[in-house]
């Protein structure tokens, strides 16, 4: 059985190494640093999200209530990173959220997430129903 080895340049290996390191750092930051679920500077809120790794696909769900469906964007930043953004139908102020010691308002959801296994980003399918986004990413099958 012949095993084909694809030749990779030193730069490719170097890039992959730093990508891996960045992903690990992201995971580390997510698990240890507690921050707010909003960003006042960008007027964004972080939505609740979940990911399930199934044998043939990865299914991501994101709760995006009050979202304008036409504004919804799901981007693959690289082979493992998804960025999700959406505009809300109306602004929500801190006051409405029951917070009086901050001033400001939000009109967008923004999130990014790392997929833990290799997927085919180009074959991504999305579904949006009742403010719930569902993303299906077929997994890359090992040969």
């Amino acid at each position: 059985m012949a095993i084909e080895k694809k030749k990779r340049s030193f730069i490719d290996i170097f890039d992959e190494y730093f990508d891996d390191m960045e992903r690990e750092l992201d995971r580390w930051r997510e698990s240890f640093v507690e921050g707010p679920s909003w960003n006042l500077k960008a007027s964004t809120m972080e939505p609740l999200k979940n990911m399930r790794v199934l044998p043939t696909e990865v299914v991501v769900t994101v709760d995006l209530p009050l979202t304008k469906e036409s504004s919804l964007k799901v981007k693959a930043l690289d082979q493992r990173t998804l960025e999700i953004s959406a505009e809300m139908r109306r602004k929500m102020s801190f006051k409405e959220l029951g917070v009086t010691h901050h001033k400001g308002e939000f009109q967008r959801f923004h999130a990014h997430m790392q997929v833990p296994v290799a997927v085919q980003m180009k074959k991504m399918k999305t579904k949006f129903k009742k403010g719930m986004l569902e993303i299906h990413l077929p997994r890359k099958q090992k040969r």
């Binding site: 679920s37 972080e46 609740l48 709760d63 209530p65 009050l66 959220l97 029951g98 403010g131």
Partner: peptide
Amino acid sequence: GEEIRVKARDVMK
């Protein structure tokens, strides 16, 4: 309902 979902994110987390 949708407004409640926005407000309840942090408690849910």
